[in-house]
């Protein structure tokens, strides 16, 4: 077991973990942050995307111990109290989900995408950049609309 001290959604977290524990397992099983999902577990589907020091990563392809002294943000860390993050709000308004399983990963990737492009996104870029997130229900139409709408709201 190893001592892990990290920050999750702005709060310091300390725990004893096995080196082989994946970040997604730590988030779900130990921190009870079950918004981050395990889809494929082979780093293809993107249901497990979180931010590590503000950068989108697949938490099924990262060890929990690698987050020592780092900052992790999960879907639970986006809303400010009762106020949804603009991306969450846009997904809600545009009905950018059906079963909802891929949604947390979609939103975390979308926030990263908008921040990297400084809010300047077009449909082609959004579709290209969703390559790491798979949705089996929606056909992506409303997801793309939601991200473009949120990009407007989030424009600096």
């Amino acid at each position: 077991m190893m001592r892990l001290e990290t920050e999750i959604n702005g709060k310091p977290v300390a725990a004893e973990v096995e080196p082989r524990m994946l970040l997604v397992e730590f988030l779900r099983d130990q921190c009870r942050l079950t918004g981050t999902h395990v889809g494929c577990d082979t780093s293809q589907c993107g249901a497990c995307v979180v931010h590590l020091d503000g950068v989108a990563v697949k938490s099924c392809a990262l060890l929990a111990v690698q987050c020592q002294s780092r900052k992790v943000t999960t879907i639970e860390g986006l809303a400010q109290g009762a106020a949804l993050h603009p991306m969450q709000q846009a997904f809600h308004e545009h009905h950018a989900l059906q079963c909802g399983f891929c949604t947390p990963g979609m939103i975390m990737s979308a926030v990263d995408m908008v921040e990297r492009h400084a809010g300047d996104l077009d449909e082609h870029t959004v579709r290209e950049e969703l390559e790491g997130n798979i949705c089996r229900c929606t056909g992506y139409e409303n997801i793309v609309k939601a991200i473009l709408a949120a990009a407007e709201t989030m424009r600096p």
Partner: peptide, 9 residues
């Protein structure tokens, strides 16, 4: 290579 998240790691 890969996708956005893979390229970040």
């Amino acid at each position: 290579i890969g996708d956005v998240q893979v390229r970040n790691r």
